[in-house]
Design a protein around this nucleic acid. Structure first.
Lengths: 143, 143
DNA sequence: CTAAATGCTCTAGTGACTAGAGGAGCAAGC
DNA sequence: GCTTGCTCCTCTAGTCACTAGAGCATTTAG
């Protein structure tokens, strides 16, 4: 009766959870699939591949809008891949900046916990450093 | 007329923006300050220090709930600072995990962009890697 | 005194989902 | 045929830490 996969089967096959699949449909990332008589979604193998693509891109930290652009490109195989390259390079830049920022953060946190003498709060280096921002004004941190 | 600082002065002195200060009051992170006759907030220097503390902790990526706990500790200087130490260590652990994860991510993104031959989308390594998740199933990435 | 700046409250939006309510469909066993 | 229990549907609201804006009151500078 079911020609195509139910949403839970598509979820298992793609690694994207059912509610997330519905959400992707809602925001126009995945085209609405045909429905069965009983109004249930019936997915094709192509849909599953698209979902796996989206999932992998999300795991790499691409934003939904970037993925939208990558999906459009994927559907036009004769075009230059310059745009895809640019999106990936931008993401790489993001990741590099984030690593740099977190590395600075780690240093400061290490300094904090290393300085903690396990005494009273009054002498606690952790609290002290947080209170005196002057000590690290030179960093620009981010999480 | 104004005994205490206006919200914008407190914002400048602490580095926390006015709407954010009101937000912190709303969620109970900063006690509601007294008001002037005209119902405007009047902050003390203590409030400004508290705000600077919060700001620095946020810059170090501590979550609001962690900051709430740290502020309670700060107000009890005679207690052991073990709890503060634990919070800071937990945050350090977060940061270390995130750095590890992002470093793996960077490697994969570098592989993607390095392999791009700047040809057509059909042969694009970027698109290809995203489509074939099998190639990197061994990583567990995160953004 | 007036105009501009700043303040107030309240609501809604961000990103990328996740959780739950309340109901309908469906496969298998009795 | 009927029940049990799973899956599916839609819709709303919640997450986190803010940010933006509407519409009005107050304060301050000239």
């Amino acid at each position: 009766m079911f020609e195509g996969l139910s949403i839970s089967r598509a979820a298992k096959a793609s690694g994207v959870k059912s509610p997330t699949i519905r959400f992707y449909e809602q925001i126009g990332l995945l085209p609405p699939p045909p429905r069965t008589q009983g109004n249930q979604r019936a997915y094709s193998d192509g849909d599953v591949r698209r979902l796996a693509f989206i999932r992998h891109a999300r795991e790499l930290g691409f934003e939904i809008d970037a993925i939208r652009a990558l999906l459009v490109l994927q559907d036009q195989p004769e075009q230059s891949c310059q745009a895809a390259d640019e999106i990936a390079r931008a993401r790489l830049g993001d990741v590099e900046r984030k690593i740099a920022s977190l590395t600075a953060l780690r240093k400061e946190l290490e300094r904090m916990v290393a300085g903690c003498a396990h005494g009273k709060v009054a002498e606690c280096r952790v609290i002290e450093i947080l209170a005196d921002h002057g000590e690290c004004r030179h960093h620009q941190h981010a999480s």
